[in-house]
Nucleic acid binder design. Structure first.
Lengths: 242, 242
DNA sequence: TCGCTATACTGGTATAGACCACTGAACCAC
DNA sequence: GTGGTTCAGTGGTCTATACCAGTATAGCGA
């Protein structure tokens, strides 16, 4: 029941109550929830108060309102995918998998052409190349080749990239936080090298991802090419109009 | 001024009016906008109506509300690199290519399981299946299989989908505008059927895309599976932090 | 059987009034 | 000056009521 003397607003108490009904499974996706008028009568509150609770739950994506029909429990929300900028580690955690990494190569090199162009690197400058086999639940998922370029990038050569997320190290030790990224996603057949490292059959498909990451001032600092096992990984994207 | 007889709701008219003040630069970021009570007196509307306009603009990130102080014009947003929701036609035009389509199948059918689940279709209801070979510059690019379900969907059977965009027809004739979509992008090898239609070699990779599209009320109305030629197409996404 | 209409719902919009907690400034006593 | 009180103004919450357009259905009439 709702309590007028409780410090929390009535509409907020009602929200929690409705949320609980859905979380407990008493109301299932697609079910109609009581109408605004029913709720106002049942809990002795005004229609506008019931309305505010329903409206906010609808904005949160928990309910779905249909004029003339009623208010319904929405289908379970799928996690945000593409629009949020995350690295492999955070990505895997969000999918409920334990992320891992095996460093294959970590070196200061002359940048390849694509990286030089993407990161706008002047001639004679070197970059750090970090190649890692990415694991989830102990299984190889992707081969990640990162090209990094910023002031003092050579300090990265002594970091431990097997037990730490790249973005975590960049953020905590170098005050370099990714603000924006552009990525291109394509399909391809695996190369011989990828075939061996990812333990997939010859001629198996892979998802290729090329990503350029920018800091808060719009400076590109990371260009990463990844090859994901197609049988273990899909990109998820949420699009919106306008 | 606001017009009670105008078909658009008063709070909506007020929103547009306030938006205009901000867009024109009359009100700058950080400025305080008139209080709810001032607006209700000035435009001869109730406080709740003014409140709804202010609340929605705050949700959109255009205004910032501070209890006890007032409502202010928000600082311009930094992010907003959201992926835009478009169909194949608009997508190809944006890439500077001439889009085309060849209808392979257009029929009223029992929905397959995946479509039934995605579109929340009750038993015994039929849907429209539209299978098209999509072209760009005369060359086959993708095989698109759309499942459509909404009130009056059977009228789609007489539409011309070779010379008109699906979203254009839905929007203009059925007042159905896509507001949100969730898509999953993966890689795979082409099937025999795709191989023939897309004119690619056996064992060639394809990009697979499964998309569920929702209208402004959050109702799913389209579930589309597409297979893109990997040698002709890449998805591009812009990500932002936070 | 088919199509229409009346009816009872729904959420959306709108009004008018009320009290609350909080902010900030003016004021006052020390 | 400093610390308190008062007070007007703000957004937040809440009640009660009203009408609208859209939806679903039961029942009637041809």
């Amino acid at each position: 029941m709702l309590d007028k003397n409780y410090p929390l607003p009535l509409y907020f108490q009602l929200k929690e109550l409705l949320r609980e009904k859905i979380a407990s499974g008493e109301w299932k996706p697609g079910d109609m929830v009581p109408s605004e008028r029913e709720l106002s009568e049942q809990y002795h509150i005004s229609r506008m108060t019931a309305r505010q609770a329903l409206r906010e739950l609808a904005i949160e994506g928990i309910l779905r309102r249909e004029p003339g029909r009623g208010t319904f429990v929405a289908e379970p929300k799928i996690e945000h995918g593409l629009t949020r900028l995350t690295g492999f580690t955070e990505d895997m955690k969000a999918r409920g998998l334990k992320p891992g990494a095996k460093v294959i190569r970590l070196a200061l090199i002359e940048p390849p052409v694509l990286a030089r162009r993407a990161l706008q690197i002047p001639p004679d400058k070197k970059i750090v190349l970090l190649e890692r086999l990415r694991l989830a639940g102990g299984e190889p998922i992707a081969l990640e080749t990162s090209h990094l370029y910023f002031n003092g990038v050579e300090n990265l050569l002594t970091e431990d990239f097997e037990n730490n997320s790249l973005y975590q190290i960049l953020s905590e030790k170098y005050h370099l936080t990714p603000a924006r990224a552009v990525q291109k996603i394509g399909a391809d057949l695996c190369s011989h090298r990828e075939r061996e490292l990812l333990q997939i059959p010859e001629g198996a498909p892979v998802l290729r991802n090329k990503r350029v990451t920018y800091d808060a001032w719009g400076r590109p600092f990371e260009y990463t090419e990844s090859a994901y096992r197609a049988d273990r990984y899909v990109f998820q994207a949420e699009l919106s109009a306008g």
